[in-house]
Amino acid sequence: MLTFQSVILGVLLGGLYALLAAGLTLYFGVMRVVMIAHSAFLILAAYLAWYFHRETGIDPLVSLVGTVPLFFVLGVAMQRLLISRLRAATLTMMSVLLTFAIALLIEGLLGYVFSGTQRRTQLSYSGTSLDFFGARVAVVKLIAFGLAAAALLGLYVLLKASRFGLALRATIQHREAAQLAGIDTNRVAGYGFGLGLATAAIGGTALALDTTIYPSLHWHWIGPLMAIIVVGGLGSVPGAAIAAMLLGLTQSLLQLPLGTTWAQTVFYVALFATLAFRPQGFFGGRLAQRF
């Protein structure tokens, strides 16, 4: 029964991983940028949700109304003002350094404003859990999962069924051909970046519901997320989602026999295995072959 409990928790965690990995995939897709600061923005959003709740007493989910647009605009600005200034030849490498610096900056700011104290959102329903075929699942975890799943579904529909989605995918898959089809690829790349950061806003709010947060928490997230997008085949949103689910599940299942720290290594084992046997990623990834 504990195994079943782990499976449920793994799926719930995988949903959050999948949403965040989709964001990383977008940055890489539109700009070939490795966005180290993604998880720092995640924690920033979690802090904003926690702070919003503490100050107003309103449910932290409501903070999404502010953080999603804010992060979207921040993402667009970041692409326009910073990333697009980097020289094409060294862009990926320089983006690692640049976004590493941004991650440190956010961590420093959070420490400065909110101190290094661990924070936890206390909600009326924090302690409630549901009985799910014998597994006990905290309601906050279900809400977090529902939020991530809804956001991922929305992203999928946007990419697959809208004119903007067509332009975004074209920009990711062949930038010059997209320009020749009349697509303003710079603008589209900016919006792609904004969308990526919006996933961090949603993920951060979900995280704030059931996790203790502190400024340096983002370092625990970035490694697994990077591993997920490589295993999923850089640039493939469905690939990243599948890899996220599988790895989230595996991590959760290994937590009981191996403990938290060792369970985390599943991401790095999967990363090494991917690089050794199938560098283009296991899912999708025709795109990654070109880089």
Binding site: R169, A170, Q173, H174, A177, L180
Partner: peptide, 11 residues
């Protein structure tokens, strides 16, 4: 129409 392959491969 560009030189080489320029379809959007995942579409």
């Amino acid at each position: 129409v560009l030189q080489g392959h320029s379809v959007f491969p995942e579409m």
